[in-house]
Structure formats: C-alpha cells, structure tokens
Design a protein around this nucleic acid. Structure first.
Lengths: 229, 229
DNA sequence: CGCATTTTTTACGGAGTTTTTACGCTCCGC
DNA sequence: GCGGAGCGTAAAAACTCCGTAAAAAATGCG
C-alpha cells in the first residue's frame, strides 16, 4: 500500500519542523501549509488521507477551515490547539473535526490518533463495483444482479452460483465435476444431470436463442464454457 | 425516533451515577455494566451505537475488552481513564479504541466526542449530510427520524437498526446472516425468521403496498436489498 | 404492581426453487 | 440402419423459503 498522505496546516515554524520530523519519520507523505487559505487549497489538490490542523492561524479561524472543507470532503481532521477549554473542543468537534489534541501534546499520542483516523478512512472506502461484461450481458458481482441488454434478469441462487462459477473460469472449459463441486458442494459428483437442467434454465433466461447459445457453450464430453470477449 | 444506545462499562458507582445523569439527560438510552465480563455481554446483546469504557476494571483489563469486542464488532469505543500517560493512550487506541478521554473530564467534551463517534457510525463526516433519501423516504441518520412523504414514521429500535443497516449497503444485497449479525449481534445466525418478521413490520410502516415493495426488496434465497436510485 | 410496547416464538398457506424422473434428439461407431 | 452415450427439454414431486398472523415472553414505564 502507498504511504498515507497527510496535510498539515500550522503557522508556527517550530511546531511544523517538529511534526515534519515526526510524521515523515513514521512514513507519512506530508504536505504543509502555513495559512488557512493555503491549507484548504492543499487539501483540495492533494486529497489527503488525513488532515492535522492548528486552530489558531493568521488569516482565518480554524473552525472556518473545518466548515469549508466539510462542504466537499469527509477527510479525517485532527485539530491541534493550545487552548484546552471545553468550549473550544466542543465547537471544533461539532463543526466536523474528528479529534482534538491539546498542546503540549506527545508525538506518540498524535501518531496513535492519526492511526485511528486512517483506520476509519480505510473502513469507509467502499470497494468499487466488480462488474463482468460480455456482449449485452452485465453481471455485477458486488450487487449481485444480472442485466441482459439493459433489462434485469432474475436468477435463483443456484442459477446465479452456476453463472458466477462459469464467469470465474471465463473462456476456459469447466468440467461437470468442477461445476458440481463448486455449485452443489462435495458429494454430488454423480449428479451430472443437475448441471444439464440448470444450464437449460440459465440459457432460457440469458440467451436470445437458447438452442443456439452465444454465451453458455457446451463442450461435448467435458463440460461447459463461457464465451470470452 | 429511537434514541442512540450507549453501553457504559465502569466500576466506580460515583462516576456511573454522574454519567447516567449526563447521558440520559442528553437523550441517550444507557445500559450499564460494572465489570468487563458483564460489559462484553451487554455489548453483544444490546448492539449499541457506542461504548464508553473505563480502562480500570476489577475483573479484566480494559484493553482485553477492546480486543474481544473488536473480534465481532466495529462499534465506536470511547475509553475513559484516570491514567493520562502517552503509553496508555497509544495502547488503547492501537488496540481498537476510537477515542481516549482522561479523567478528570468535562461532560461537554465527552458528549461532543460521543457525537463524533455517532457521526462516524452514521457514515457522515458532518452533521448536515447525514440524510438518506430515496423517493419519498427520508432517513435522518443523526437525528434518527424517518419520514415518508413528509409524515414522520415511528420505528422501534430493532426496526430502525434493520433499516439503517440496509441503508448502509443501499443497492447491494445483504444476506440474512449479515443482517442478523449487524442487528441482533453474534450467535443469532440461525434466527432467519427474525428478519422475515421484522421486514414485514418495516414494510407495513414504509411501503405503500407492503405486498409489492418498492424500497425493501426480497432477494429470494439470499437476503434483502434496499432499492437504489 | 399493572399497563403498553416491543421482541421472541410458533404455526401455516402459498409461492418459488430444487430435485427427480422421463423422453426425444443427435452424434457416433458398428 | 441400429444402439448407446451424452445432451437438452419438460414436467411432476419434494422441498425450502417467504410473508403473515398471532400468541407468548420480555421489557420499559409509571
């Protein structure tokens, strides 16, 4: 995995230097901004995995930074602040910050809280759709639905499992025994007629002319094969 | 509108009393456990929206509680502790805690951090964009109210949890087992009829024609799916 | 404690799915 | 041509799953 990207918005050069050493030393890719304005732009262009934000900045209130960023990004924001009053913390957290660390802080704690933030971000990212396409046939393996020429095709669990098994071996021959084992489980090796019956069902639902299949091809004496591109 | 459920694991009666007043006063549904063992059981059976955990407990290390719960649940865990050493914080956060508040703490800060946790659980980075919309169905995940064509719909806690779980996977199929685990907790895998009964309840409250659902769709043999766009 | 709400159990009809059985077809070699 | 093996189809039988209702148990609340 690539190194996590962090944007640091902090005006005091001394703290910047310290955090630069800490974060880069831990393997983070760090981008720094000394002002709120530059920071917001930096977040927009770098699309970081997390943001470390000092609340006290010369040009703009840190809370305003949070609110602006939250209009278009859910990136985890960890606030750093010299002010440890309850009121400050509540305002920042309710504005959309994910954590609040008071100065003086220890590098270990900040790093640990950064790991928590990245954990959250990693969990939130949805896996993209894995969709198998072959001619007019679209099989969305994540959403578990099958489309033929734009129409939704309703498949029973066994039909779906059979189809996805063939997709997994797309283009290659799959023997009767393999299909039986993968779809019906072990101890069904002699039930080859199941496969024939269900291949018929599938063809009726997926093929324009079930008698002249374009996708679900028979390999006589061996098994079946899903046509490839 | 079901209230957020919080499990509090804390052995000192004094702090328990204080937090009980604070949290119930803010509209949380609170379940308390004085020991780690009881706490883990409570989390498993209540399936709370967040956990507040004191690290120092009579029967088991708080870190062990975190590790056990993390085996089967991603529920946000906020650690309370009298120990404010960097080492303690890092250990707890790396063990899977989501936040760490040192005693003495202010109730306002704890409540704010709890709101952050619930925001995360609702899948929103910012209070505003936590409304799920689908046709005439509006679900405010932070305020926890459900509107259908402008009218408020009263849901029981279990109904609400079932609906929000489906929302989290909107458009994708969710298996019976997934629903059981996320709504009823572990050790309910064989109770598939719960899901059928509650899906019926939900449809009666949300669907115009429960027999011809437009939102809460059945995926025969697999589970259910919330219609998308 | 008694009441209202919610959750858990139980039962059943009907729809849909899987399994089983049967039969016609074609492609072979004989 | 004949017969057998493998393939495709159809339909009956057995089974599972879904939705519903309603009773029973648990829970929360005054």
């Amino acid at each position: 995995m690539p190194e996590p990207v962090v944007v640091l918005i902090e005006d005091e050069p001394q703290i910047r230097r310290f955090l630069r050493a800490t974060l880069t030393g831990e393997g983070y890719r760090l981008f720094e901004a000394p002002t709120a304005g530059a920071g917001v732009i930096e977040i927009g262009s770098r699309q970081p995995d997390a943001v470390v934000l000092d609340l006290v900045l010369p040009d703009m209130d840190g809370l305003e930074v949070i609110r602006r960023v939250r209009q278009w990004s859910g990136v985890p924001i960890i606030v750093l602040s010299a002010r440890g009053q309850e009121r400050d913390k509540v305002c920042a957290l309710d504005a959309g910050a994910d954590d609040y660390v008071s100065k003086p802080f220890s590098s270990g704690e900040l790093l640990a809280r950064l790991r928590v933030a990245l954990r959250h971000a990693a969990g939130a990212s949805q896996p993209e759709n894995a969709v198998f396409k072959l001619g007019g046939l679209h099989v969305d393996l994540l959403r578990r639905n099958v489309m033929l020429d734009g129409r939704e095709v309703r498949l029973t669990p066994t039909e779906y499992k059979l189809l996805t098994t063939l997709i997994r071996y797309a283009g290659r021959v799959v023997t009767h025994q393999q299909l039986l084992r993968e779809v019906w489980g072990p101890n069904h090796d002699s039930m080859a007629h199941y496969v024939r019956v269900y291949m018929g069902h599938l063809r009726h639902k997926i093929e324009a002319e079930p008698a002249r299949p374009r996708y679900l091809l028979t390999e006589p004496g061996v098994g079946y094969r899903l046509a490839d591109g």
